[in-house]
């Protein structure tokens, strides 16, 4: 069996990258300006409610809601994040250092790795399968592999949301990543529009494709593992036919071949 499907659209979201169009302009050499106090602003929740959620959840929600119009209500969703809820973890760990060891209940239920996926399913009223993947620096390859398997084997469109935010002090020293960054793809078993790009993927062991653009290099240097999807996004942005090799663990990799619409 060959894993194959169609990529119906992509989203990129982060500081100074508000939309797919903005990302495409950056690939073409537009100037990137990132502000340190940038905050993700999902629209699917009232802002007061959103403010109570972690930066990781808000980032994932903002990416998910932008790709959602390309997906049916019963789509599957794959949320992939290496670090998950670092901020909430830190708050809980600090609470466990106090004599009372009292954990806030809402903090605890939002500490799980699938907090973002759960909040997204609640905000959007989704009832299909949601899978949450982690794979350290290879989270992008692992997440894409899972999404591609689900598209093919369940004959079901899948929203893939890749997201990671910097860890708070003191965890940041142990897992340094300098920029919040998210990407999302709408993937389906059959072409949904004239702009859907066919793809197939096979396991390989080749070297991972490096970014081709200057902005791609910059994003990869932030050490955010989500930036490892940039070579794939570059291919989608330019509409070219080509192959991108995404890394997996153990020396394995995934060759993703993008064809013509």
């Amino acid at each position: 069996m060959m894993l194959s499907g169609f990529i119906d659209g992509a989203v990129v979201y982060g500081p100074g990258i508000g939309s797919w169009e903005a990302f495409c302009a950056l690939i073409d050499g537009a100037q990137w300006t990132s502000t340190a106090d940038w905050q993700p602003e999902p629209q699917c929740l009232p802002s007061r409610q959103a403010k109570r959620l972690s930066p990781a959840i808000r980032l994932a929600l903002a990416a998910a809601e932008q790709i959602a119009p390309l997906l049916p209500p019963d789509a599957g969703w794959v949320f992939a994040s290496s670090t998950g809820e670092g901020e909430t973890l830190n708050v809980i760990l600090k609470a466990l250092c106090t004599p009372e060891m009292l954990v806030q209940p809402l903090r605890f239920q939002n500490a799980v790795h699938n907090a973002a996926a759960g909040q997204w399913s609640i905000a959007a009223g989704l009832t299909g399968p949601m899978t949450c993947i982690a794979g350290f620096d290879q989270t992008v390859g692992c997440g894409f592999l899972k999404a591609a398997m689900q598209v093919k084997l369940e004959a079901r469109p899948v929203g893939l949301v890749l997201y990671d935010v910097p860890m708070p002090v003191p965890l940041d020293e142990k897992r340094p990543l300098d920029l919040p960054f998210a990407a999302a793809l709408a993937i389906s078993p059959s072409a949904s529009s004239g702009t859907s790009l066919p793809f197939d993927c096979v396991s390989s062991y080749g070297p991972v494709t490096p970014p081709a653009s200057e902005i791609g290099d910059v994003l990869c240097r932030t050490r955010n593992p989500v930036a490892r999807c940039v070579p794939l996004l570059e291919l989608l942005a330019t509409g070219s036919v080509g192959t991108v090799t995404l890394g997996l663990h153990g020396g394995a990799a995934l060759d993703v071949r993008i064809g013509r619409p």
């Binding site: 290496s82 799980v112 899978t131 982690a134 350290f136 394995a252």
Partner: peptide, 24 residues
């Protein structure tokens, strides 16, 4: 790290195929 158990198992067992963690 969420992958810490899978990473240990992969190293110890010398598995070279795909390895990842599901955390729901």
């Amino acid at each position: 790290d969420y992958q810490a158990v899978a990473a240990f198992l992969q190293d110890y067992l010398r598995i070279e195929g795909p390895s990842y963690t599901v955390s729901t």
